[in-house]
């Protein structure tokens, strides 16, 4: 099982500023069975509204400092966070035990670009 957390602003094309990752990539990851969610400085209610607007049922929506909580809540073989900031994404992600990917690196990951993944979501 792979869990992937997406930053929004500067990472996704719907961010402010826009990043390079299409929302459809998130949808595809979800459809492949990955555990998917967002970890952003946007209000949690706004994150939920964004995913609802795009018709994606994500597994989690958390604030930037809550990746450790995500890791505690979901069991996965590997945890990724994709973001665009050294200080606000990479450093806290690594502290929380996530592997960090810049958006262009995420595009090269097989599970995001064409993907295959394990079984359904398992919540602890």
């Amino acid at each position: 099982m792979i869990l992937i957390s997406f930053d929004i602003d500067g990472t996704l094309v719907v961010g402010d500023p826009p990043g390079i990752l299409e929302v459809d990539l998130v949808r595809a990851a979800k459809n492949q069975g990955l555990l998917v969610g967002s970890c952003s400085d946007r209000p949690i209610s706004a994150q939920r509204a964004l995913w609802k607007q795009h018709g994606i049922e994500v597994d989690f929506t958390v604030s930037k400092h809550m990746l450790a909580d995500v890791k505690a809540q979901f069991e996965a073989a590997v945890y990724y966070h994709v973001g665009d900031r050294e200080d606000l994404d990479k450093r806290p992600a690594e502290r929380a035990g996530f592997e960090f990917l810049w958006p262009h690196e995420a595009l090269e990951m097989p599970w995001l670009s064409r993907g295959s993944c394990g079984a359904a979501t398992k919540q602890r």
Binding site: D16, D41, R42, S45, A46, A49, S63, H65
Partner: peptide, 25 residues
């Protein structure tokens, strides 16, 4: 104009600290 986002009480309380007791919002 750009991001018509509410900040709910839940959002506020869940925000990360900048300099505690001041958080992002």
């Amino acid at each position: 104009q750009h991001r018509p986002e509410q900040i709910t009480a839940e959002d506020y309380k869940a925000a990360r600290w900048i300099a505690k007791p001041a958080n992002l919002f």
